[in-house]
Simulated scan of single mutants.
Amino acid sequence: MNAISTRGSVVVGVDGTATNRGALRYAVQECRRTGAALELVHVLPDLVAVSPLVPMVPADLTPSGAAVLARAVADVRALGTAVEPTTRLRHGTRAAELLRAAEDARALVVGRDDRPVGYRLVDGDTATRVAARASVPVVEVPPEWRERGVTEPDGGVVVVGVKSPAHAAAVLGQAFAVADVRGARLVVLHAWHLPSAYDDIIEGRVAREQVEREGTAEVQELLHPWLVAYPDVAATVRIVHDRPAHALVAASREADLLVIVRRGHGVPAAVHLGGTARAALRHAACPVMVVPPSQVPDAPPLALEAEGQAMK
């Protein structure tokens, strides 16, 4: 038994563009591993203004939306797996409707928006919007991503970023659960960097070893309950002297999945994601899972408990 919730399906936001190809591949692999159902969701806008005098209403767009879903189903079947998706066509704002569709899901998967920044500023970045507000893990996948771990003996590498103890339980619980399902190695990454360039030079000369030694001990303490709960997961701690965003993006080049937590910033939902999370979503070389801070997967029972032999 693993600690990832068995409820719900893997929901994929489908938009009919090439950016969805990686997302579909990722979602299919997750469904194969976990036995979850796959649901493809396409959102039609309430109104599209072709010109000020010629608006299009949702009824006009329904056949096009159905065609987008049909092509996505064909893409899933072309992957040659036994996963058979269901489809859902919704109307409204894309981010809001995807969040509603995924309320009871195991995870929400979206493709990375690779449009120029000007377009994203005007239309919005769906991945950032849903990751900032979702109550379930959100996974953003690069368009051309293909999984490496399924062909490797050790199941690949999952990297999890840990910044502070405040939200460590949520992100570590999810990362250990994912690594356990995949049979992957887990790298627990903590980056430290002083704000002053002068202090950074001093730190690099006289105290780096001490900081890294103390940081490793602190992270190991956070890991202890999860190492007990997941004895089959090989976890290593990596303390690096770097800016967190740069360290995460660099680590993503060797990873099959990067796991980070969404931190509350006390501001409107549209900007809940901090700069580190936004940088990871934009530049990581692998899929990025953003975990809501309130979600802590239940740890699986210990071996004796699973066999009904726990001490009373």
Rank of each mutant, 00 (worst) to 15 (best):
A235H: 04
G8Y: 04
D232L: 10
V12H: 02
P195Q: 10
V157E: 09
A78E: 15
A3V: 02
A37I: 01
Q220M: 13
A277Q: 05
E212N: 09
A235R: 03
V188P: 06
L258S: 05
H42N: 14
K312A: 08
A27N: 04
L121R: 05
G183P: 05
G266K: 06
P301T: 08
A169W: 03
G156Q: 06
D256V: 03
A66Y: 00
H283D: 10
A250F: 00
C31Q: 02
R263C: 08
H241A: 13
R205P: 01
T151C: 09
P85M: 05
V158M: 01
A67K: 12
A280Y: 04
S252Q: 02
T62R: 15
P142Q: 07
Q29H: 10
H167N: 11
A177P: 01
T86F: 00
P292D: 08
E144L: 13
E214K: 06
E103K: 04
L194F: 07
A270S: 12
S196M: 09
K312M: 03
K312P: 08
C286G: 09
Y119L: 15
W192L: 12
D46Q: 14
L53T: 14
M311T: 11
L24S: 09
R7Q: 14
E30R: 13
D104E: 13
E307R: 13
I260T: 08
R263H: 14
P116W: 05
I202R: 12
A250N: 02
P137Y: 03
A229Q: 09
R106S: 13
S5Y: 04
V240Y: 00
C31G: 07
A270T: 08
D154S: 11
A3M: 06
